[in-house]
Design a protein around this nucleic acid. Sequence first.
DNA 1: TATTGTTATACTCTATAACTATA
DNA 2: TATAGTTATAGAGTATAACAATA
Lengths: 138, 138
Amino acid sequence: MSPIPSKAQLMELLAHSVSTHYADFTAAAVDMGLTPSQAKTLTVLRRGPASMRSLAQTLACDASNMTGIIDRLEKRDLVRREVSSTDRRVKNVALTEVGEKAIDTIRERMEQTQTGLDQLSDQERAELFRLLTVVFPR
Amino acid sequence: MSPIPSKAQLMELLAHSVSTHYADFTAAAVDMGLTPSQAKTLTVLRRGPASMRSLAQTLACDASNMTGIIDRLEKRDLVRREVSSTDRRVKNVALTEVGEKAIDTIRERMEQTQTGLDQLSDQERAELFRLLTVVFPR
DNA sequence: TATTGTTATACTCTATAACTATA
DNA sequence: TATAGTTATAGAGTATAACAATA
């Protein structure tokens, strides 16, 4: 019974949703004294250690940028660099315990912020999950 | 019949969706020789002229930043500043014709990129629209 | 006095190019 | 030679503080 939105309308809503989510993430990061890029880096590292190169690829930036970002995170003891045991050119970056706590705090902040999700029924959550998976496949 | 995702899973998918969309937008902007902030500014101005102050508020940045961003857009004739006729302190920023074309091109690029939307039925589009409106109310 | 926009400053992010050390 | 990481550089975004013009 709900009216069918045009592709343009849906794209506009999508843009609004993205802006809101991104602003929330940025605010949570800034409250922890982190820049968005630094917080994104911690988020990626949450899945496990990664080389400088693969980090740059995941974050869609040039590899040279990672040096400064990791430098600043390392200076605050949020991550550490470890020379790979199999290829001495490679440096693997891993979260420290402090870094894990920091990114967990940001995640908790995001959970508290995304109150809209709590207004969905289980069925609606499952449906939103399915639809987003179609629109943004992994 | 679909399994019900946890809030954490849904938030992770949401983050992935946001990243993908943001990366697409950035790529479209860069192809037009624009930075993300510049392209976002044009997007906001598409709704109509706005003062420097309100632009900063909408873009969630300090007002002092707008000066440089608008300077660079104006230098390329994408926007123009006009002193308000009712308050001479205020400068209203408006898209030029060139600016309108630029942001339209980016929008078209985004439409071509968001191919996932084309895989939804009308009913699914309406449902996604409804669910996103609940999660990210205006 | 308060507000708008700007300037000055310092830090961060970003891409490009050149370098080093390893492979 | 090729690749991983770094450095140097220049341009852009960002917040803070201070300022001139206007309300």
